[in-house]
Design a protein around this nucleic acid. Sequence first.
DNA 1: GTCGAGACTTGCGGATTTCGCAGTCTTGGT
DNA 2: ACCAAGACTGCGAAATCCGCAAGTCTCGAC
Lengths: 171, 171
Amino acid sequence: MHSEAVASRSAEPRDSRESRNGTPHLDSVSLAIIEQLQEDGRRPYAAIGKAVGLSEAAVRQRVQKLLDQGVMQIVAVTDPLTVGFRRQAMVGVNVEGDVENVADALTAMPEVEYVVMTAGSYDLLAEIVCEDDDHLLDVINKRIRALPGVRSTESFVYLKLKKQTYMWGTR
Amino acid sequence: MHSEAVASRSAEPRDSRESRNGTPHLDSVSLAIIEQLQEDGRRPYAAIGKAVGLSEAAVRQRVQKLLDQGVMQIVAVTDPLTVGFRRQAMVGVNVEGDVENVADALTAMPEVEYVVMTAGSYDLLAEIVCEDDDHLLDVINKRIRALPGVRSTESFVYLKLKKQTYMWGTR
DNA sequence: GTCGAGACTTGCGGATTTCGCAGTCTTGGT
DNA sequence: ACCAAGACTGCGAAATCCGCAAGTCTCGAC
């Protein structure tokens, strides 16, 4: 059996090396597993196994490892505006000195949900989720602007979330 | 039994009205369920029930309804940069005319993962995920800039993802 | 006041899934 | 050549999921 599914199995080197940046190498089978779980995070291991050409137990081990390694997380996602948060915003930050330090400080804030270092007219982008206007104002003006190294910020208050997907595949 | 857990049960009105914007109303129990699944999308219904003070069957019904309504989705999330995508960027868009039209056009593009209407110096923010520089260039210059109503765009290429959370709770 | 709808509980059995573990196979190092 | 580690399979046992039925409770409509 296993007639179809992933043709590359024996061709691909069974390696589990780490690539340069510390992120583990992902072979085509793990990518296929991730794709399955991007469609439905609760899909049973047996069904995934059938789809990617692996036994149920093997899928279970792989998934567990991916979770442990932090490569993937299986979670419920919502639109924050529908679950009680009134204000959400993206903040562009310009930094003088070490960008990484500021990024770490932002990461440590519970209201900050998303932090990314970028090339462009901001050094950092941070998405923040707040309960109301006062809270938002406090976070931006009192906490973020007060961080050492922050030169300036610009805010974009969210009006409406139009799209939010996690099924972009893996390639 | 049910000694502890959510004290508010009887106090809260059992309503399932819709709020103004068409999104269903979420009571504290549903919010508590969502919180549980934000921590672990595969947590068993019985465990969730114990945590929020509901039976296994009731949790099952609620979760199913939340999924059907599109309030919540349970999925695997990853850092795109670790699963084969080389380039990712946030694009700020300025629009003349109907913003919603442009937002819908962006939403229809598979490379666009996230679209939000904002108040600030951009009308829209869109996050795009691409395989390489050529792909990125193509999406931004050929596709997005070509949309009717798009006045200008500004791009922020991602260098490093520092934080990505979905456990912000619910309030 | 009565009725009906909706939400929840309890209980249940069967199908399915999860989980742990022993055993096999392959690979890379020495 | 041998050994150790990692990955996969197969297989019971335990846990979970799922649908269903019957009964309770509350709220709003009539």
